[in-house]
Design a protein around this nucleic acid. Structure first.
Lengths: 220, 220
DNA sequence: GACTGTGAATAGTTTCACAGCC
DNA sequence: GGCTGTGAAACTATTCACAGTC
């Protein structure tokens, strides 16, 4: 079965598989079994096979998956065969860290513009870019064909930034500000909330302290 | 129904509710309906009510939830009524951003130690702390009773750091390095992978470009 | 009348287990 | 024999719809 809808849960794991394949990438023509790739990815082998089966029939029974070929297929499915120009809004500590993060370029994400509102930051050097005022967003986004933006501002500014992003016809937003932003339904938002992750850890930490240490595999 | 197991999916949403309540926090005794709180949190009202019902019976029919009281209950459930000393391993860009992130302290997470391996970084100022060599991890973690650590190193160093954390009896790890780390089952790990989030956005972005713009609410 | 709490229904996800192919 | 692909089973999560309470 090859045709459409790939479950959201599967989509969320494809980048993990891709990373694992990248790490294991050896000779041309090397293959990997579902068992091995699953272990490297921290999932169950049956789940890995089912996930991959949504993309197509890329394995060979009795042999496994061709590493290179599988990487190409997953990349294509994720839309990583093209370059994605990305904008970062907010050039504080987090904005700096994101700009310098090597993992983006590896996957075809190129930061092509950095915006802020603070007078003091406008014109500052950001890698080989200059920080622009957010009023230039629509112009720059249009001319550079930016579809993806990263919000790295404080929470109070996030909704205003989101509104501007929507106006600039950006359709995918990664939000690091610790708040919910409202956007029209055709815009995709993903949220990374740093303190949220710690709170979830705190929950399980407390649990294991209360009762005798019991395994806790955490998901989602 | 009050007794135990709170679903993982619910635990993952409690911090969102807490954030929304915090934002709406007004007068003493103010109440909020499941409808309103759900909207602010970006979830369905029935789901919110079911989630809260796992914690106990904290609402009043015909009225809603007392904002302050509900915040206390959620905080208690998440283990946020105590302070959590936290260590950051890796003092690069991301380590800096995390150290300066205000959202942690708000929820009782206090960075009490920062480690690195680079000679040049040891002794450097990190807020009101000094960066220590990772060899001191076990000593410091023991004396400061650190239970939670954040890995903010490059990927190749992450597994070694994780092993040291386990040895230092740290039981909760937030991993920002783009790789899977192996730990014994009694240790909780959560992973934040920045480029993974962009890859998932890329998938949905590509989808909407292929077919006429269709709503895409993304979860997981 | 307004709004919560929750069984029942539905939808989605994971795991099992094995047929089918190399 | 080894390993994939996948129906069926088991489990988990979400949503509906309404009885119960203020």
């Amino acid at each position: 079965m090859n045709s459409r809808p790939i479950p959201d849960a599967t989509v969320g794991r494809l980048p993990i598989y891709l990373r694992a394949l990248f790490d294991v990438l050896g000779d041309r023509g090397a293959t990997i079994s579902s068992e091995t790739l699953a272990r490297l990815s921290g999932v169950n082998a049956a789940q890995l096979r089912k996930d991959l089966s949504y993309l197509g029939t890329y394995g060979t029974r009795g042999v496994g998956y061709d590493v290179q070929y599988l990487m190409v297929q997953i990349s294509r499915e994720l839309g990583l065969t093209q370059d994605w120009p990305v904008a970062i809004i907010g050039f504080g500590n987090l904005g700096h860290a994101l700009l310098n993060y090597k993992g983006f370029a590896e996957r075809g994400f190129h930061v092509v513009a950095v915006f802020d509102t603070l007078k003091s930051k406008i014109g500052e050097k950001a890698g080989n870019l200059l920080v622009k005022h957010i009023d230039e967003l629509t112009d720059v986004a249009g001319s550079q064909e930016i579809a993806i933006a990263i919000i790295a501002t404080p929470a109070p500014a996030a909704q205003d930034v989101a509104d501007r992003l929507v106006e600039a016809r950006i359709t995918s937003i990664l939000n690091f500000a610790p708040c919910i932003i409202n956007v029209p339904p055709e815009v995709s938002v993903r949220k990374v909330d740093l303190s949220m992750e710690l709170q979830i850890l705190s929950f399980y930490e407390q649990r294991t302290k209360e009762s005798p240490p019991v395994n806790r595999a955490i998901k989602a």
